[in-house]
Simulated assay, not measured.
Amino acid sequence: MSFGDPNPNNPYGQQPGQQPQGQPPQGQPGYGYPQQAPQGVPPQGQPGYGYPQQQPGVPPQGQPGYGYPQQAPGTLQANSGYINIPTLGTVEVASMGRRLGARCIDAVVIGVLYGILSAIGLASALGLAKSTDDCGSNLDPGYQSCVNDASVSIIATMFGVLALFILITLLYEWLLISLIGATLGKKALGLKVVKENTGMAPGLGAGFIRWIIPIVGAFLCYIGAILTYLSPFFDNSGKLQGWHDRAAGTLVIKQ
């Protein structure tokens, strides 16, 4: 009876079914073979349970991402005269020199219109005054009535001219600012009135508020209107908003 290897051709000298020396048994890790990571540690390239995952399109915490707003609308940039407005981005606030220059140009335009209308009204009044010559002698029974009618016509003509002037200034200032954001004077100096929260033209409502405040102030010997137009000098926010701009929520910027 021999205790040797039953299979003399087996180079390892081991029983059948036994793993060769130096090779790990099947199902068990051996030296030099990739080991599985300990429990709780995710394999490389795969996220593990309980680990925070980054959502697509969301920047990491504390880091700004591309396309994300970095500055709130309506904020000034270090009081440098620039402001961030929605749909417009960073724009320059109009200086008071330009604004007063634009106001002077508008005053010339309105003054020319007023001169034309005044000339028409004066000519009409003179024509009505001459018509009193047809009333006859002051001894005539109907003379006083004829003169009174002519006087009423002259007063009505002058008030009509004044009403037409107010209407023209209303249409000039209110409609141009409301619809396109600029009068002829502002267009000439590259200025525009916009809504602070949208960057768009003020619209009829805000444009009317912005127009009516100086008009109401003009009834106080025009002192109120002058103070309104100079009120941006008193604005400590850096936006150079006048009282009429604050009430209407508007800004004057450079185009």
Rank of each mutant, 00 (worst) to 15 (best):
Q19S: 07
Q63D: 04
V93C: 06
Y172S: 05
Q70G: 02
I105W: 11
K195W: 04
S178T: 00
Q61R: 05
V108C: 05
D106P: 06
A102W: 13
A150D: 03
V112N: 04
G181A: 07
I120S: 10
A37V: 11
G89D: 11
W243H: 02
G17H: 06
L230H: 08
F233I: 13
P47E: 08
D133A: 07
G111M: 10
A188Y: 07
P16C: 04
I85A: 04
Q70E: 11
I154D: 03
Y143H: 13
L230A: 10
Q144V: 03
Y222F: 14
P38F: 08
G190H: 07
S80V: 07
N79W: 13
S131I: 11
Q71W: 12
L171T: 02
S153T: 08
Q19I: 12
L167A: 10
K239P: 11
Q35A: 10
Q255R: 12
N236P: 12
V93A: 06
S80K: 11
R98W: 00
Y68Q: 14
L176K: 03
A119G: 15
V112I: 15
F219V: 09
Q28L: 12
I154T: 03
S80Y: 07
I177H: 11
D134H: 05
P60I: 13
D5I: 03
A72N: 12
P64N: 02
G67I: 07
Y33M: 15
P42I: 06
I105V: 15
W174E: 04
A129F: 09
C135V: 09
L126Q: 15
A78K: 12
T169H: 04
V91N: 01
W243D: 00
I226D: 01
A123K: 09
S124Q: 13
W243V: 05
D140K: 04
G48W: 01
S118A: 13
I253C: 09
P34L: 04
Y143W: 15
K195T: 13
A156Q: 02
L117S: 10
G32W: 13
N138S: 15
L167C: 05
I116N: 06
I116S: 00
A248H: 03
L189V: 11
T132Y: 03
P60R: 05
E92V: 02
Q44E: 08
I209N: 02
I253K: 07
G111W: 00
L175W: 14
C104F: 15
G62F: 13
P52V: 05
N9H: 08
L167T: 13
M200S: 15
Y12H: 15
G45H: 07
Y82G: 05
T228G: 02
E92L: 06
V108D: 00
Q35D: 11
R210H: 12
K186N: 04
G224I: 01
R99F: 14
L240T: 00
S145D: 00
G242D: 08
N10D: 14
Y31P: 09
G127K: 09
C104Y: 14
S231C: 13
L240G: 06
P141Q: 08
S124T: 14
A119Y: 03
G50C: 10
A182P: 01
Y49L: 11
Q26Y: 09
R246S: 01
P52A: 10
L179N: 10
P69I: 12
Q144E: 12
P141I: 03
L191H: 06
S95D: 02
G74F: 08
L175A: 09
A125S: 14
A188Q: 03
